[in-house]
Amino acid sequence: MSFTDWTAASGSIFKVKFVGLYQFENIYAQTKLMGASGSEGMAFANTFKYAFAVTIFLNIFGLLLALVFNLPFKFKGFIRSAFFIPCIFSALIICFTFSAIFYPGGPFDRFLTAVGMSDFIRPWLTDRSINIYVISAINIWMFLGFTATIYLAGLKSIPGELKEATRIDGANAWQNFRHITLPLIAPAVTISMVLSLVGSLKVFDLPYLLSGNQAYVINSLVYFQMGNQLYAYGTAISLVLFIIVCLLAFPLLKVLRKNEVQL
């Protein structure tokens, strides 16, 4: 369908015409012509910013949280559950909650005012220069417990006697983590990195529900083009997104698998 002129005006699906790469040329032309200020350019730029921020910081914080969860302390099970709960809730509930928190004059703005930081108050969800980063932070908070659980499963698979042997040999905590823990949890790193990259590239719900058309991502563009009954153009954008996901996910998967080791 992305190689046709399919629109609502085409009538029957059998009346569409083959137009080759016209839709893809149109995507390129619109992105190049409008740049970052146009909807196409903004959608691609925001998607890459979002994917980079979520993939990197979600995995860093998730690993750090898993290391904390792996320590012996009281109420460990309760705290793990508390961090895991957000990813169970519907994205709609999460978005309504944070829309209320970041609403102008809402709890977050009042908190900044109370601590003497009123100069930093911004329209968090409507300012196009920062809203994609705010939404990225909400995504990281939402799936932090899930990511930590993946890393915790990897940490639990490391034999305790192996760590004890390294301590006897005089390795400090950093050396233990660098040469024992990190290589042995490499499969968990692979799973978490690929899942977070693919999920963040094809995101739609959080940007749309939190900011509408103020934080365009690629799937937002698909949604609005389909809503405008430009079916072929929307399908072409969706196919471009599929190609982007493949071009980024498969090389990442290959690179990360090279670092995996087995006991």
Rank of each mutant, 00 (worst) to 15 (best):
S196M: 09
I13C: 06
L239V: 12
G227F: 06
A186F: 12
Q175A: 13
A153C: 10
V198N: 05
F224D: 10
Q229C: 14
L184A: 13
I140Y: 10
L256H: 00
F96H: 05
A45Q: 12
D5P: 03
N259V: 12
P159E: 03
G38C: 08
I130Y: 02
T190S: 10
G77I: 07
D5F: 03
D169Y: 15
T55R: 06
F78T: 12
A171Y: 14
E164F: 04
L58E: 10
T113R: 13
G116W: 07
A29H: 13
K15Q: 04
G77W: 09
G41I: 07
V261T: 15
C246F: 09
P183S: 08
I60V: 14
L253F: 11
L125I: 10
T97I: 14
A171I: 08
G77M: 09
Y231K: 03
S129E: 03
L64S: 11
K76C: 11
V222M: 09
D205W: 10
K258A: 04
P207I: 12
L33W: 13
I132E: 10
F83Q: 06
I13W: 08
V134D: 00
I94R: 00
K74V: 08
F73E: 13
F242G: 13
T126R: 05
D205Y: 02
T97N: 14
N139I: 01
L182Q: 11
M34L: 12
A45G: 09
L64T: 03
V115M: 04
I168T: 13
G234M: 07
N59P: 07
F250A: 12
V115C: 05
I130K: 00
N213I: 11
A249G: 07
S200C: 05
N213V: 15
